[in-house]
């Protein structure tokens, strides 16, 4: 699972009000190279929750993103776009867990697939 997906996912447990961001427990992170597409990044930028991405990226071993949401003008910087690209699309959480920030419920991640299935009493 890439941080792009992590940035969209939230905990869906009944009664949870703020299920985002899911805290990452990273046991194994792999890097897979993908084509760099600045148009996609520029388009995505406004939808990304920046703090969640920067924090997740740090946990995944890549502390290169600014902590605070950068100004839109930063999208002109190729250096920034490369880092954004790497964090968003190339870091994969292979093994570990996603943890609901409100309840502490762990959603295990196996072979890159988070198991978000809820138990009966969580629906």
């Amino acid at each position: 699972m890439r941080l792009l997906t992590h940035n969209m996912l939230s905990s869906n447990i009944k009664g949870v009000i703020n299920g985002f961001p899911l805290r990452i427990e990273a046991d194994n992170v792999v890097v897979k190279q993908v084509d760099f597409n600045p148009d996609f990044l520029k388009n995505m930028f406004s939808k990304i929750d920046w703090k969640a991405l920067a924090e997740a990226s740090k946990i995944m071993g890549y502390p290169e993103l600014p902590d605070e949401t950068p100004d839109h003008s930063i999208l002109d910087s190729d250096d920034f776009l490369q880092k954004f690209h790497h964090a968003l699309l190339e870091l994969h959480l292979e093994e570990g867990a996603l943890v609901c920030p409100e309840t502490g419920r762990r959603f295990p991640v196996n072979k890159g697939i988070p198991n978000m299935l809820l138990h009966e009493d969580e629906v």
Binding site: N12, D49, M116, L117
Partner: peptide, 14 residues
Amino acid sequence: DLILGDMGQGLGLR
């Protein structure tokens, strides 16, 4: 990316 989940439980997305 792939997520194991049940759409009938609602999608947990922002």
